[in-house]
């Protein structure tokens, strides 16, 4: 019962970026992946959701390997990503964006809808319901993107740089929302962040990625105070 990345290797056309990456996310757990720019963090999440081809190794969730499935089938299994830069559908309304998230939920829908809890906690999303997504501010867009992902009833939720381009205060909001999502959905969350300090403060466990390899892993609080981490995300060695 966990999301497992086993010895994964992948990359873009000509440049291999990840090599031999293994990690695991338990349900209900918040796991951070930190590392400097270009370490392969985005490549990692894109590989897990199937936007980049896995060249070697395996990917599995509670129902077994999904390495050979196409991207939309992985989403339907409950492996859901919030991509870097939010990627809302710009000319759909907030409500329509969230409705699309619900599509991926399929059979997993039912029971208490965690979306309601999110909307209650962050009413701004509800206020913007009928607005076109590209008219929202960056912080609001990130709220909608997270809500959309929750509407898909994720079993495992992958967040790629949710704080990117946000002001510090908005970043705090986003981290509060992530905490709430963890509480309400019970999903395992893989949080990829350049803002390592906050990510490590929020996470239970963490991995440090450097040059496409996992160089450290362990308790987030311990990693947060270690010199190695500073080296990894500041790119100093």
């Amino acid at each position: 019962m966990s999301l497992v990345v086993d010895n994964a290797e992948s990359g873009y056309d000509r440049a291999p970026i990840l090599s031999g990456v293994s990690l695991r996310v338990e349900p209900g757990e918040l796991v951070a992946v930190v590392g400097s720019n270009g370490a392969g963090k985005t490549t990692l999440v894109k590989t897990i959701v199937g936007q980049l081809a896995l060249r070697a190794g395996d990917l599995a969730d509670d129902d077994g390997s999904f390495a050979k499935l196409s991207s939309h089938r992985r989403a339907k299994r409950g492996v859901v990503m919030v991509p870097e830069g939010r990627k809302l559908f710009p000319r759909l309304t907030v409500g329509e964006n969230i409705a699309l998230g619900r599509r991926a939920a399929g059979k997993r829908a039912g029971g208490e809808d965690p979306v309601d809890a999110l909307l209650d906690a962050f009413p701004i999303v509800r206020e913007r319901w009928g607005q076109q997504a590209n008219l929202l501010s960056g912080g609001e867009q990130q709220m909608v993107a997270l809500t959309r992902a929750v509407a898909a009833r994720p079993r495992y939720l992958l967040l790629d740089e949710p704080s990117l381009g946000l002001s510090p205060l908005k970043t705090l909001d986003v981290f509060r929302l992530i905490e709430l999502i963890r509480e309400r959905t019970g999903a395992g969350i893989l949080l990829v962040e350049q803002m390592a300090d906050q990510a490590l403060a929020a996470a239970d466990r963490a991995y440090v990625l450097e040059h496409g390899r996992i160089v450290m892993e362990g308790d987030a609080a311990k990693l947060r105070s270690s010199d190695e981490v500073r080296r990894a995300y500041l790119g100093v060695s």
């Binding site: 510090p168 205060l169 509060r176 390592a196 300090d197 990510a199 403060a201 995300y233």
Partner: peptide, 20 residues
């Protein structure tokens, strides 16, 4: 800025929720 410690507009660190 790199570590992601929030700063207010005067460049001072903002209180984070874990109190640091």
């Amino acid at each position: 800025a790199y570590l992601g410690k929030p700063l207010d507009e005067h460049g001072h660190a903002v209180e984070t929720d874990d109190g640091t």
